[in-house]
C-alpha cells in the first residue's frame, strides 16, 4: 500500500519525462554548436569554428555589449526600486493609493510585452512633444522600459522574503532606540540580502532576454543582442547562434549553481537559528 506524502513510480516517471521535455532542446543546441557542418542537424565532425566565427562577428559582439550594459544598469535600478516597493507593500500599513500601487506592481508580471512596448514608446514620443525636442531613443529608453517591468519581478521576490522574515530583531532594534532608516540598513538589509541577489540576477536575465519591448523603444543606433539574434534567426538557422546559445547556457548554469549554494547556505543558517532558539 502507498504511503501518503511520498511519490509512486508513476509520478516519478512523469516528472522524469517532464525534465526530458525541458532539457532535450537545450542539449541539442549545445551538441550541434560543436558541429563541423553548416547544416545544423547533420553531424559533420567535431569543430569549434562556429565559436571563432561568433567572436569575429562585429555586429553581434556590439549588440552583446549594448545588451550587457543595459542589463547591468537595469539590475541595479530594479533592485533599488523593487526593494523600496516591497517595503512599501509589506511593512507599511496603509496609505492612500496602496491598492493602486499593488495593481501597478502585479500587472507588469503578466502584461503582454507588445502592449508594454507600444505604450512606453508612445510615452517617450509624447514627452518629446511636451519638451519640444524628440527624446533620443536608445540605451537610456531601453533601460527605463526594462527597469519598469523588472521592478515588478524583484518586488515579488523581495516581498515574499520580507513576509517570511522574523520581525522580532527589527522590533528589538526599534525598542533600543534605532530609527527606521538605521533599522533597515543594519537589521533588515542583511537579512534579505539573498533575496536581493536573486532579484538582481532575475532582473539582469529578464533584461538580457527581452526582444519585444526593446524593439519598440530602441533607436537606430542601439540594437540589442536579442534583436540581432531575432533578425538572423528569421533569415534561417546558423550554427553561430548555437555557439552563442552554448556560451549563454554555461553562464546561466554557473550562476544557477552559485545561487543554489547561496540558497542552501541561507537555509542551513536559518535551521541553525531555529535550533538555537529552542
Amino acid at each position: 500500500m502507498r504511503r501518503a506524502g511520498s511519490n509512486s513510480a508513476f509520478s516519478l516517471t512523469l516528472l522524469g519525462l517532464g525534465y526530458l521535455f525541458l532539457y532535450v532542446p537545450i542539449l541539442s543546441l549545445v551538441v550541434y554548436s560543436f558541429n563541423e557542418s553548416r547544416l545544423v542537424t547533420v553531424w559533420g565532425g567535431f569543430s569549434t569554428k562556429w565559436y571563432r566565427e561568433l567572436f569575429a562577428d562585429r555586429q553581434l559582439m556590439d549588440a552583446a555589449w549594448v545588451s550587457l550594459q543595459v542589463a547591468f544598469n537595469t539590475a541595479w535600478s530594479a533592485v533599488i526600486l523593487g526593494t523600496l516597493a516591497a517595503m512599501l507593500l509589506v511593512r507599511f500599513r496603509r496609505f492612500r493609493g496602496k491598492t493602486l500601487f499593488g495593481a501597478m506592481i502585479t500587472a507588469p508580471l503578466v502584461m503582454p510585452e507588445v502592449i508594454t512596448g507600444l505604450s512606453l514608446l508612445l510615452l517617450f514620443v509624447h514627452i518629446g512633444d511636451l519638451l519640444g525636442t524628440p527624446i533620443m531613443r536608445g540605451m537610456g529608453t531601453i533601460w527605463i522600459a526594462h527597469t519598469t517591468f523588472a521592478t515588478a519581478f524583484v518586488t515579488v521576490v523581495v516581498a515574499s522574503r520580507l513576509t517570511e522574515m522574523d520581525r522580532s530583531l527589527e522590533e528589538a532594534a526599534m525598542d533600543l532606540g534605532a530609527n527606521r532608516v538605521k533599522v533597515f540598513f543594519v537589521i533588515t538589509l542583511p537579512l534579505i540580502l539573498p533575496a536581493l541577489a536573486a532579484g538582481w540576477l532575475l532582473a539582469f536575465t529578464l533584461s538580457l532576454d527581452d526582444l519585444v519591448i526593446a524593439s519598440f523603444v530602441s533607436g537606430p543606433a542601439s540594437t540589442t543582442l536579442p534583436m540581432k539574434v531575432f533578425s538572423s534567426v528569421r533569415m534561417g538557422v546558423s550554427p553561430k547562434i548555437n555557439a552563442l546559445a552554448t556560451i549563454w547556457i554555461v553562464a546561466v548554469s554557473l550562476a544557477a549553481i552559485f545561487a543554489w549554494r547561496v540558497m542552501a547556505r541561507g537555509e542551513r543558517r536559518r535551521r541553525a537559528q531555529q535550533r538555537g532558539k529552542r
Binding site: 532542446p25 536575465t205 547562434i241
Partner: peptide, 29 residues
C-alpha cells in the same frame, strides 16, 4: 530546491534561443 531549480533553469536561458532550438528539432530535416 534542486528539482525546482531544474524547472526554472531553462527559463533563464534566453527565450529566443529556446524557440530557435525548436526550429532545429521540428524542421522537415
Amino acid at each position: 530546491n534542486v528539482a525546482l531549480l531544474l524547472v526554472i533553469l531553462p527559463s533563464w536561458t534566453a527565450f529566443l534561443i529556446r524557440i530557435y532550438a525548436w526550429i532545429g528539432i521540428l524542421k522537415n530535416n
